[in-house]
Design a protein around this nucleic acid. Structure first.
Lengths: 203, 203
DNA sequence: AGATTTGTCAAACGTGTGCTTGAATACTCG
DNA sequence: CGAGTATTCAAGCACACGTTTGACAAATCT
Protein backbone atom coordinates (compact mmCIF):
# COMPACT_ATOMS: atom_id res chain seq x y z
CA UNK A 1 0.00 0.00 0.00
CA UNK A 2 1.18 3.44 0.90
CA UNK A 3 4.59 1.96 1.60
CA UNK A 4 6.79 4.25 3.64
CA UNK A 5 3.84 6.45 4.47
CA UNK A 6 2.68 4.40 7.44
CA UNK A 7 6.18 4.38 8.77
CA UNK A 8 6.36 8.16 8.54
CA UNK A 9 3.04 8.63 10.29
CA UNK A 10 4.10 6.33 13.09
CA UNK A 11 7.25 8.38 13.67
CA UNK A 12 5.31 11.60 13.64
CA UNK A 13 2.65 10.36 16.04
CA UNK A 14 5.30 8.91 18.31
CA UNK A 15 7.07 12.28 18.46
CA UNK A 16 3.95 14.26 19.18
CA UNK A 17 2.80 11.90 21.90
CA UNK A 18 6.26 11.50 23.38
CA UNK A 19 6.57 15.27 23.71
CA UNK A 20 3.12 15.43 25.23
CA UNK A 21 3.03 12.54 27.62
CA UNK A 22 6.46 10.97 27.89
CA UNK A 23 7.36 7.36 27.46
CA UNK A 24 5.99 5.69 30.55
CA UNK A 25 2.41 6.79 30.02
CA UNK A 26 2.39 5.95 26.36
CA UNK A 27 0.95 2.75 24.90
CA UNK A 28 1.55 1.24 21.54
CA UNK A 29 -2.13 1.42 20.73
CA UNK A 30 -2.26 5.16 21.38
CA UNK A 31 0.52 5.67 18.89
CA UNK A 32 -0.98 3.42 16.24
CA UNK A 33 -4.43 4.93 16.67
CA UNK A 34 -3.03 8.43 16.24
CA UNK A 35 -1.17 7.25 13.16
CA UNK A 36 -4.19 5.39 11.79
CA UNK A 37 -2.16 2.22 11.66
CA UNK A 38 -2.45 -1.29 12.97
CA UNK A 39 -0.43 -2.35 16.02
CA UNK A 40 1.41 -4.91 13.94
CA UNK A 41 2.77 -2.12 11.76
CA UNK A 42 5.16 -1.21 14.55
CA UNK A 43 6.72 -4.66 14.63
CA UNK A 44 6.81 -4.71 10.90
CA UNK A 45 8.46 -1.32 10.33
CA UNK A 46 10.58 -0.94 13.43
CA UNK A 47 10.81 -4.28 15.20
CA UNK A 48 9.40 -3.18 18.52
CA UNK A 49 7.89 -0.29 20.39
CA UNK A 50 11.28 0.49 21.86
CA UNK A 51 12.88 0.65 18.43
CA UNK A 52 10.20 3.00 17.17
CA UNK A 53 10.70 5.22 20.17
CA UNK A 54 14.45 5.23 19.73
CA UNK A 55 14.25 6.15 16.09
CA UNK A 56 11.65 8.83 16.70
CA UNK A 57 13.76 10.42 19.40
CA UNK A 58 17.07 10.24 17.57
CA UNK A 59 15.54 11.83 14.50
CA UNK A 60 14.04 14.63 16.55
CA UNK A 61 17.32 15.33 18.31
CA UNK A 62 19.25 15.41 15.05
CA UNK A 63 16.90 18.01 13.62
CA UNK A 64 17.08 20.08 16.78
CA UNK A 65 20.87 19.97 16.94
CA UNK A 66 21.20 21.01 13.36
CA UNK A 67 18.84 23.94 13.81
CA UNK A 68 20.73 25.23 16.82
CA UNK A 69 24.04 25.02 15.00
CA UNK A 70 22.68 26.80 11.96
CA UNK A 71 21.07 29.57 13.96
CA UNK A 72 24.14 30.22 16.09
CA UNK A 73 26.50 30.22 13.13
CA UNK A 74 24.33 32.75 11.37
CA UNK A 75 25.01 35.22 14.17
CA UNK A 76 27.45 38.07 13.42
CA UNK A 77 30.93 37.64 14.83
CA UNK A 78 30.45 40.41 17.38
CA UNK A 79 27.16 39.05 18.78
CA UNK A 80 26.70 39.86 22.47
CA UNK A 81 25.96 37.45 25.29
CA UNK A 82 22.31 38.39 25.12
CA UNK A 83 22.27 37.83 21.35
CA UNK A 84 23.73 34.36 21.77
CA UNK A 85 21.39 33.50 24.62
CA UNK A 86 18.39 34.73 22.64
CA UNK A 87 19.22 32.63 19.62
CA UNK A 88 20.14 29.62 21.68
CA UNK A 89 16.94 29.57 23.69
CA UNK A 90 14.61 29.90 20.74
CA UNK A 91 13.42 26.27 20.78
CA UNK A 92 12.73 26.60 24.50
CA UNK A 93 10.59 29.66 23.91
CA UNK A 94 8.81 27.72 21.19
CA UNK A 95 8.20 24.84 23.59
CA UNK A 96 6.24 27.04 25.94
CA UNK A 97 4.73 29.61 23.61
CA UNK A 98 3.89 27.27 20.72
CA UNK A 99 4.12 23.76 22.15
CA UNK A 100 2.68 22.09 19.08
CA UNK A 101 4.94 23.80 16.58
CA UNK A 102 7.70 21.61 15.24
CA UNK A 103 10.35 23.42 17.29
CA UNK A 104 8.17 23.12 20.35
CA UNK A 105 7.83 19.37 19.96
CA UNK A 106 11.56 18.96 19.39
CA UNK A 107 12.49 20.93 22.48
CA UNK A 108 9.98 19.09 24.62
CA UNK A 109 11.31 15.75 23.45
CA UNK A 110 14.84 16.89 24.23
CA UNK A 111 13.72 17.84 27.70
CA UNK A 112 12.20 14.44 28.31
CA UNK A 113 15.16 12.53 26.98
CA UNK A 114 17.70 14.54 28.93
CA UNK A 115 15.82 13.96 32.15
CA UNK A 116 15.60 10.22 31.58
CA UNK A 117 11.86 10.40 31.09
CA UNK A 118 12.30 8.25 28.02
CA UNK A 119 14.10 4.95 27.55
CA UNK A 120 17.86 4.77 27.99
CA UNK A 121 18.51 7.53 25.51
CA UNK A 122 20.35 9.99 27.70
CA UNK A 123 23.67 9.05 26.07
CA UNK A 124 22.19 9.46 22.61
CA UNK A 125 21.09 12.91 23.65
CA UNK A 126 24.60 13.95 24.61
CA UNK A 127 26.12 12.44 21.49
CA UNK A 128 23.68 14.00 19.07
CA UNK A 129 23.62 17.42 20.70
CA UNK A 130 27.40 17.61 21.11
CA UNK A 131 28.02 19.68 17.96
CA UNK A 132 25.43 22.22 19.03
CA UNK A 133 26.92 22.42 22.49
CA UNK A 134 30.36 22.94 21.02
CA UNK A 135 29.16 25.87 18.94
CA UNK A 136 27.70 27.42 22.05
CA UNK A 137 31.03 27.31 23.84
CA UNK A 138 32.77 28.76 20.84
CA UNK A 139 30.32 31.65 20.73
CA UNK A 140 30.42 32.26 24.45
CA UNK A 141 34.20 32.36 24.55
CA UNK A 142 34.10 35.69 22.77
CA UNK A 143 31.68 37.37 25.14
CA UNK A 144 32.22 36.17 28.69
CA UNK A 145 34.92 37.10 31.19
CA UNK A 146 38.30 35.85 29.98
CA UNK A 147 39.37 34.70 33.41
CA UNK A 148 36.86 31.85 33.18
CA UNK A 149 38.54 28.49 32.68
CA UNK A 150 37.32 26.19 29.95
CA UNK A 151 36.03 23.88 32.61
CA UNK A 152 34.11 26.59 34.40
CA UNK A 153 32.60 27.77 31.16
CA UNK A 154 31.50 24.24 30.36
CA UNK A 155 29.94 23.87 33.78
CA UNK A 156 27.98 27.04 33.30
CA UNK A 157 26.83 26.01 29.87
CA UNK A 158 25.49 22.79 31.37
CA UNK A 159 23.61 24.73 34.03
CA UNK A 160 22.12 26.93 31.35
CA UNK A 161 21.07 23.85 29.39
CA UNK A 162 19.62 22.40 32.58
CA UNK A 163 17.46 25.46 33.01
CA UNK A 164 16.47 25.31 29.34
CA UNK A 165 15.38 21.73 29.65
CA UNK A 166 13.49 22.37 32.84
CA UNK A 167 11.58 25.24 31.28
CA UNK A 168 11.02 23.42 27.98
CA UNK A 169 9.52 20.58 29.96
CA UNK A 170 6.98 23.07 31.26
CA UNK A 171 7.94 22.45 34.85
CA UNK A 172 7.92 26.08 35.90
CA UNK A 173 4.85 26.71 38.06
CA UNK A 174 4.15 29.83 36.06
CA UNK A 175 1.90 30.24 33.07
CA UNK A 176 4.55 31.75 30.86
CA UNK A 177 2.52 31.14 27.72
CA UNK A 178 -0.17 33.47 29.06
CA UNK A 179 2.37 36.26 29.33
CA UNK A 180 3.23 36.11 25.69
CA UNK A 181 6.22 34.97 23.74
CA UNK A 182 8.29 38.12 24.12
CA UNK A 183 7.99 38.16 27.88
CA UNK A 184 8.84 34.44 28.06
CA UNK A 185 11.93 35.07 25.98
CA UNK A 186 12.98 37.93 28.20
CA UNK A 187 12.75 35.76 31.31
CA UNK A 188 14.64 32.83 29.86
CA UNK A 189 17.35 34.98 28.32
CA UNK A 190 17.73 36.96 31.54
CA UNK A 191 18.16 33.87 33.66
CA UNK A 192 20.58 32.23 31.27
CA UNK A 193 22.62 35.40 30.86
CA UNK A 194 22.85 35.51 34.64
CA UNK A 195 24.18 31.98 34.83
CA UNK A 196 26.69 32.52 32.05
CA UNK A 197 27.81 36.01 32.81
CA UNK A 198 27.84 36.02 36.61
CA UNK A 199 30.99 36.84 38.55
CA UNK A 200 32.87 33.63 39.31
CA UNK A 201 32.73 32.61 42.95
CA UNK A 202 36.07 32.16 44.71
CA UNK A 203 37.03 28.48 44.61
CA UNK B 1 2.90 -8.29 65.25
CA UNK B 2 5.08 -5.27 64.78
CA UNK B 3 2.01 -3.22 63.91
CA UNK B 4 3.01 0.21 62.70
CA UNK B 5 6.51 -1.03 61.99
CA UNK B 6 5.62 -2.58 58.64
CA UNK B 7 3.87 0.59 57.67
CA UNK B 8 6.95 2.63 58.51
CA UNK B 9 9.24 0.32 56.56
CA UNK B 10 6.95 0.53 53.53
CA UNK B 11 7.09 4.31 53.58
CA UNK B 12 10.85 4.28 53.93
CA UNK B 13 11.38 1.79 51.12
CA UNK B 14 8.96 3.66 48.91
CA UNK B 15 10.91 6.88 49.46
CA UNK B 16 14.28 5.35 48.77
CA UNK B 17 13.11 3.63 45.62
CA UNK B 18 11.09 6.59 44.42
CA UNK B 19 14.15 8.81 44.72
CA UNK B 20 16.23 6.21 42.94
CA UNK B 21 14.03 5.04 40.12
CA UNK B 22 10.92 7.19 39.92
CA UNK B 23 7.35 6.07 39.88
CA UNK B 24 6.92 4.52 36.44
CA UNK B 25 9.70 1.97 36.80
CA UNK B 26 8.66 0.96 40.27
CA UNK B 27 6.58 -2.10 41.06
CA UNK B 28 4.66 -2.90 44.18
CA UNK B 29 6.69 -6.03 44.65
CA UNK B 30 9.98 -4.16 44.60
CA UNK B 31 8.77 -1.93 47.37
CA UNK B 32 7.41 -4.75 49.50
CA UNK B 33 10.53 -6.84 48.99
CA UNK B 34 12.74 -3.96 50.09
CA UNK B 35 10.52 -3.47 53.11
CA UNK B 36 10.42 -7.19 53.90
CA UNK B 37 6.64 -7.12 53.71
CA UNK B 38 3.93 -8.92 51.80
CA UNK B 39 2.23 -7.25 48.85
CA UNK B 40 -1.07 -7.33 50.68
CA UNK B 41 0.41 -5.12 53.39
CA UNK B 42 0.15 -2.18 51.02
CA UNK B 43 -3.58 -2.58 50.54
CA UNK B 44 -3.97 -3.16 54.22
CA UNK B 45 -2.03 -0.15 55.46
CA UNK B 46 -2.56 2.35 52.68
CA UNK B 47 -5.35 1.16 50.41
CA UNK B 48 -3.41 1.07 47.18
CA UNK B 49 0.01 1.54 45.66
CA UNK B 50 -0.97 5.04 44.67
CA UNK B 51 -1.98 5.93 48.20
CA UNK B 52 1.30 4.63 49.56
CA UNK B 53 3.18 6.67 47.01
CA UNK B 54 1.18 9.79 47.79
CA UNK B 55 1.74 9.48 51.49
CA UNK B 56 5.44 8.73 51.08
CA UNK B 57 5.91 11.76 48.86
CA UNK B 58 3.88 14.18 50.95
CA UNK B 59 5.74 13.20 54.09
CA UNK B 60 9.08 13.66 52.36
CA UNK B 61 8.12 17.10 51.04
CA UNK B 62 6.91 18.25 54.44
CA UNK B 63 10.19 17.33 56.05
CA UNK B 64 12.13 19.03 53.28
CA UNK B 65 10.08 22.23 53.45
CA UNK B 66 10.48 22.45 57.18
CA UNK B 67 14.23 22.01 56.98
CA UNK B 68 14.61 24.72 54.39
CA UNK B 69 12.55 27.14 56.45
CA UNK B 70 14.47 26.39 59.63
CA UNK B 71 17.85 26.74 57.94
CA UNK B 72 16.99 30.01 56.23
CA UNK B 73 15.49 31.54 59.35
CA UNK B 74 18.61 30.68 61.29
CA UNK B 75 20.60 32.97 59.00
CA UNK B 76 21.68 36.35 60.42
CA UNK B 77 19.62 39.32 59.28
CA UNK B 78 22.46 40.70 57.18
CA UNK B 79 23.14 37.47 55.28
CA UNK B 80 24.39 38.08 51.73
CA UNK B 81 22.97 36.68 48.51
CA UNK B 82 25.67 34.03 48.49
CA UNK B 83 24.87 33.11 52.09
CA UNK B 84 21.21 32.68 51.27
CA UNK B 85 21.96 30.70 48.12
CA UNK B 86 24.39 28.47 49.98
CA UNK B 87 21.91 27.63 52.69
CA UNK B 88 19.06 27.21 50.26
CA UNK B 89 20.86 24.80 48.00
CA UNK B 90 22.10 22.52 50.74
CA UNK B 91 19.64 19.69 49.99
CA UNK B 92 20.62 19.87 46.33
CA UNK B 93 24.27 19.49 47.21
CA UNK B 94 23.31 16.57 49.42
CA UNK B 95 21.41 14.99 46.55
CA UNK B 96 24.49 14.80 44.40
CA UNK B 97 27.26 14.46 46.98
CA UNK B 98 25.47 12.11 49.35
CA UNK B 99 22.48 10.77 47.42
CA UNK B 100 21.56 8.20 50.03
CA UNK B 101 21.59 10.59 52.96
CA UNK B 102 18.17 11.61 54.17
CA UNK B 103 18.52 15.10 52.71
CA UNK B 104 19.67 13.58 49.45
CA UNK B 105 16.64 11.35 49.20
CA UNK B 106 14.28 14.21 50.04
CA UNK B 107 15.75 16.50 47.41
CA UNK B 108 15.69 13.77 44.77
CA UNK B 109 12.06 13.04 45.50
CA UNK B 110 11.24 16.73 45.25
CA UNK B 111 12.95 16.81 41.88
CA UNK B 112 10.92 13.89 40.61
CA UNK B 113 7.62 15.23 41.89
CA UNK B 114 8.17 18.72 40.51
CA UNK B 115 8.94 17.33 37.08
CA UNK B 116 5.84 15.15 37.06
CA UNK B 117 7.92 11.99 37.21
CA UNK B 118 5.59 10.79 39.93
CA UNK B 119 1.81 10.59 40.02
CA UNK B 120 -0.25 13.78 39.89
CA UNK B 121 1.52 15.32 42.83
CA UNK B 122 2.82 18.47 41.23
CA UNK B 123 0.17 20.54 42.99
CA UNK B 124 0.97 18.95 46.32
CA UNK B 125 4.56 19.92 45.74
CA UNK B 126 3.70 23.58 45.29
CA UNK B 127 1.35 23.62 48.24
CA UNK B 128 3.73 21.95 50.65
CA UNK B 129 6.81 23.88 49.59
CA UNK B 130 5.03 27.25 49.56
CA UNK B 131 6.18 28.32 53.05
CA UNK B 132 9.78 27.56 52.16
CA UNK B 133 9.49 29.47 48.92
CA UNK B 134 8.00 32.42 50.78
CA UNK B 135 10.92 32.55 53.18
CA UNK B 136 13.29 32.57 50.23
CA UNK B 137 11.62 35.65 48.77
CA UNK B 138 11.67 37.37 52.10
CA UNK B 139 15.39 36.74 52.44
CA UNK B 140 16.18 37.71 48.89
CA UNK B 141 14.30 40.99 49.16
CA UNK B 142 17.04 42.29 51.43
CA UNK B 143 19.92 41.48 49.14
CA UNK B 144 18.94 41.90 45.52
CA UNK B 145 18.56 45.04 43.46
CA UNK B 146 15.65 47.11 44.74
CA UNK B 147 14.42 47.95 41.29
CA UNK B 148 13.28 44.37 40.84
CA UNK B 149 9.52 44.03 40.95
CA UNK B 150 7.93 41.39 43.15
CA UNK B 151 6.88 39.55 40.05
CA UNK B 152 10.32 39.59 38.51
CA UNK B 153 11.83 38.38 41.77
CA UNK B 154 9.34 35.53 41.91
CA UNK B 155 10.12 34.56 38.34
CA UNK B 156 13.80 34.43 39.12
CA UNK B 157 13.22 32.39 42.23
CA UNK B 158 11.32 29.86 40.12
CA UNK B 159 14.17 29.66 37.65
CA UNK B 160 16.58 29.09 40.51
CA UNK B 161 14.35 26.34 41.85
CA UNK B 162 14.16 24.87 38.37
CA UNK B 163 17.91 24.65 38.22
CA UNK B 164 17.98 23.16 41.70
CA UNK B 165 15.54 20.48 40.74
CA UNK B 166 17.37 19.70 37.53
CA UNK B 167 20.65 19.28 39.36
CA UNK B 168 19.11 17.37 42.26
CA UNK B 169 17.65 14.96 39.72
CA UNK B 170 21.21 14.27 38.62
CA UNK B 171 20.50 15.33 35.07
CA UNK B 172 23.68 17.34 34.61
CA UNK B 173 26.01 15.36 32.32
CA UNK B 174 28.85 16.04 34.72
CA UNK B 175 30.10 13.86 37.53
CA UNK B 176 29.81 16.52 40.18
CA UNK B 177 30.07 14.00 42.97
CA UNK B 178 33.56 13.09 41.82
CA UNK B 179 34.64 16.72 42.22
CA UNK B 180 33.73 16.80 45.86
CA UNK B 181 31.02 18.44 47.85
CA UNK B 182 32.67 21.86 48.16
CA UNK B 183 33.16 22.20 44.44
CA UNK B 184 29.61 21.08 43.75
CA UNK B 185 28.34 23.68 46.19
CA UNK B 186 30.40 26.38 44.54
CA UNK B 187 28.96 25.58 41.12
CA UNK B 188 25.37 25.49 42.26
CA UNK B 189 25.64 28.62 44.35
CA UNK B 190 27.41 30.45 41.53
CA UNK B 191 24.75 29.61 38.99
CA UNK B 192 21.88 30.45 41.32
CA UNK B 193 23.46 33.71 42.40
CA UNK B 194 23.79 34.58 38.71
CA UNK B 195 20.11 33.94 38.09
CA UNK B 196 18.99 35.90 41.11
CA UNK B 197 21.46 38.75 41.04
CA UNK B 198 21.80 39.38 37.31
CA UNK B 199 21.03 42.74 35.82
CA UNK B 200 17.40 42.84 34.72
CA UNK B 201 16.93 42.78 30.98
CA UNK B 202 14.98 45.68 29.46
CA UNK B 203 11.34 44.68 29.10
C1' DA C 1 -0.40 -12.83 -16.55
C1' DG C 2 1.68 -15.27 -13.06
C1' DA C 3 4.93 -15.21 -9.36
C1' DT C 4 7.21 -12.88 -5.69
C1' DT C 5 7.74 -9.41 -2.51
C1' DT C 6 5.87 -5.88 0.43
C1' DG C 7 2.53 -4.21 3.44
C1' DT C 8 -1.89 -4.50 6.27
C1' DC C 9 -5.23 -6.40 9.40
C1' DA C 10 -8.14 -8.81 13.18
C1' DA C 11 -7.45 -11.91 16.45
C1' DA C 12 -5.07 -14.13 19.84
C1' DC C 13 -1.10 -15.13 23.19
C1' DG C 14 1.93 -14.57 27.12
C1' DT C 15 3.62 -11.80 30.65
C1' DG C 16 3.86 -8.48 34.32
C1' DT C 17 1.21 -5.80 37.10
C1' DG C 18 -1.94 -4.07 41.03
C1' DC C 19 -5.16 -5.94 43.81
C1' DT C 20 -8.09 -9.37 46.49
C1' DT C 21 -9.06 -13.47 49.08
C1' DG C 22 -9.38 -16.52 52.88
C1' DA C 23 -6.85 -18.83 56.04
C1' DA C 24 -3.21 -18.52 59.48
C1' DT C 25 -0.81 -16.07 63.04
C1' DA C 26 0.20 -12.53 66.44
C1' DC C 27 -1.37 -9.32 69.60
C1' DT C 28 -4.84 -7.10 73.30
C1' DC C 29 -7.57 -7.05 77.06
C1' DG C 30 -11.46 -8.65 80.03
C1' DC D 1 -6.91 -18.31 79.69
C1' DG D 2 -10.06 -17.19 75.88
C1' DA D 3 -12.65 -14.18 72.88
C1' DG D 4 -11.91 -10.62 69.80
C1' DT D 5 -9.08 -7.74 66.98
C1' DA D 6 -5.12 -6.60 64.21
C1' DT D 7 -1.72 -8.10 61.08
C1' DT D 8 0.64 -11.25 57.89
C1' DC D 9 0.88 -14.44 54.16
C1' DA D 10 0.66 -17.59 49.83
C1' DA D 11 -2.06 -18.05 46.19
C1' DG D 12 -4.67 -16.51 42.60
C1' DC D 13 -7.54 -13.10 39.76
C1' DA D 14 -8.32 -9.61 36.21
C1' DC D 15 -6.67 -6.54 33.24
C1' DA D 16 -3.55 -3.90 30.17
C1' DC D 17 0.24 -4.19 27.56
C1' DG D 18 3.80 -5.55 23.83
C1' DT D 19 4.15 -8.95 20.60
C1' DT D 20 3.00 -12.72 17.28
C1' DT D 21 0.30 -15.17 13.94
C1' DG D 22 -1.66 -16.40 9.64
C1' DA D 23 -4.61 -14.87 6.27
C1' DC D 24 -5.12 -11.47 2.95
C1' DA D 25 -4.36 -7.51 -0.33
C1' DA D 26 -1.29 -4.37 -3.08
C1' DA D 27 2.63 -3.49 -5.43
C1' DT D 28 6.54 -4.97 -8.16
C1' DC D 29 8.95 -7.82 -11.16
C1' DT D 30 9.86 -11.09 -15.29
Amino acid sequence: MAGAETRRRLLESARTLLAERGDAELTLREITDAARANVAAVSYHFGSKEDLRTEAVRGALRILAERVVTALEALPADASLVDVATTWCEPVVAAIARPDSEDGVLARIASRVATNAVGGLRDDYEAIMAPAHAVVIERLRRVVAEDLSDDELRLRRECAIGLFLFIAGDHLPIDLAARGEAEARRLVVGAVAGILGGTPLPG
